[in-house]
Structures are given as C-alpha cells and as structure tokens.
Design a protein around this nucleic acid. Structure first.
Lengths: 123, 123
DNA sequence: CCTTGCCTTAGAGTCAACTCTAAGGTGTAT
DNA sequence: ATACACCTTAGAGTTGACTCTAAGGCAAGG
C-alpha cells in the first residue's frame, strides 16, 4: 500500500500552503487528486514531484497560464511528449536569457556599489 | 542649455509607458521633476539614468517598496551613501542567489527534456 | 475655427497569484 | 461531551504593479 498525504503534510513537503494546493487543483494544475472516505484529498509521492516541478517552473518565471497548458498536455498522455518537450526547450531559452540579463545587472550593481564607496570617501 | 524631454519621449527612451512614469512620480520613485510653463513635466538626461537603474533593480526582483526606500535615501543626499551601498550589497547577494537557483532549474529542465525525449522514442 | 496630438489630474479598473473567510464536517485526546 | 486540530466548499478580499478613464488645457496644421 502506497503512503498518502493529507493536504497540510503535502503543503509542508512542497513548501507551499494548503490554500495554494486547493487553488492549483481548482485551476487544473493538479488533476486526478482523489478523496478518502471523509472527502479529504489524498496526495501521493508522485504529486510531490509534480508540485515541486511546478514550483521550479514558477521560480523561473513561467506564468500559471503556461503551466496550465503544460498540465493539460500531460493529462492527455504520452502522445503529447514531443509538444511538452518543445515547451520546455522554449522555456529553457528564456531562462538562459534571464540568467544572462541578471549577470549584466550584477555588473551594474557592482559599478553602483563602487560609486557609492567613492561618495563615502569624499563625503 | 540642457536638453529636456517630455513624458512620452522619456518613456520611449526608458522602455516604459508614460503612465508608469507618472505612477513612479506619484509614489516618490521620481522626485523633483519640475514643470514647464504649461505644467508639462521636464525630464533631464540624469533622469534617464535613474529610471533605467530602477528598471534594472526591478528586473532583478527588487520590489517597488524597497526602491522607494532607496530613492528616499538618495533624496536625503550624499550622507546616506553608505546606507545605500549596504542596500545594494544586500541586494547583490540576493541576485547572486537567484542566478544560482536559476542555474539549478536549468539542470532540472534539461533532465525533464531528456525524459520527454525518451518518452517520444518509446511512444 | 476645428481637428489632432500632445499634456495634466484624480481616481477607478485590471491582472496574476494567491490568501482568507464563513459555515460546516471529522477524529482524537481529556 | 467537548475542545482541538484537522478537513471541505464557494466565494470574497488582498497585494503589487501597473493601466486606463474622464474631464479638461495647450499648440500646430489646414
């Protein structure tokens, strides 16, 4: 018998709130979460991986709308694997660009820090 | 005589909308923008640099509330240079951490892309 | 003189992504 | 048996950062 989790345990395993999990289910980022005899949600190990994956997509700036698309393709089964791969490859490009841009900003911040040091010496 | 810009020119120079510039002035991210005879805002070269700086802070995830703090210190003059430098150094750490985290996510995305390729071969 | 395209203000509306509330049910400990 | 911590739902409220609207003024072209 596989271990299952209730919503609060799940939330703490994934670093989100129970509210967020309910919300994600409502907007179909989570599908097929079934209930126990009391109507409580039963989460499984596989859900942990999926939710953490969603959190990483979010951390890289993917909007929920795009995750919904991805989730819908996933729901449709393995024949959408190529399409999902393409989405990920597109997103990969964006993340790489974002990293580049952040690196540029780091340079700018360093420059500003140096300028402030100069002002401190003068003032 | 120094060249001045009207709000729309300024907006296009900085890659924002005129609405945003008015909003930034309202919340004191922009201070001391004075008006011409018609009451129109007069922007200067120095404002371009400042607004671009704000855009870069934003791009690195700094919330407007924190930029407001920074802008207030700047308004107070050179004796706040050290405090501003500290803010920038703190923020620099966060940006560096963000880049690290994005790099980790890139690895995860690559792993997922590979898994989808496998599914494509099998399906 | 009239249209067009700027500009002004105060304040309302939008959007994403939660976040919380109300009203009620369940399960365990004292 | 009653307090407590959990769970459910539908739906309302919040936050951050804009974005737009209404009502009106200035200035050049036809």
């Amino acid at each position: 018998m596989e271990k299952t989790f209730r919503i609060k345990q799940m939330a703490s395993l994934c670093g989100v709130t129970a509210h967020t999990l309910r919300y994600y289910e409502k907007i179909n980022l989570l599908v097929g979460i079934n209930r126990d005899a009391n109507g409580y949600r039963c989460f499984h190990e596989a859900d942990v991986e999926w939710i953490r994956f969603l959190q990483q997509l979010k951390a890289t700036g993917m909007p929920l709308a795009q995750m919904q698309q991805f989730a819908e393709l996933r729901r449709q089964g393995d024949h959408t694997a190529a399409e999902r791969r393409e989405m990920l490859e597109q997103h990969r490009l964006q993340v790489a660009a974002q990293i580049e841009s952040l690196n540029d900003c780091l340079g700018m911040i360093d420059f500003k820090i140096e300028r402030h040091r100069q002002k401190e010496r003068q003032g």
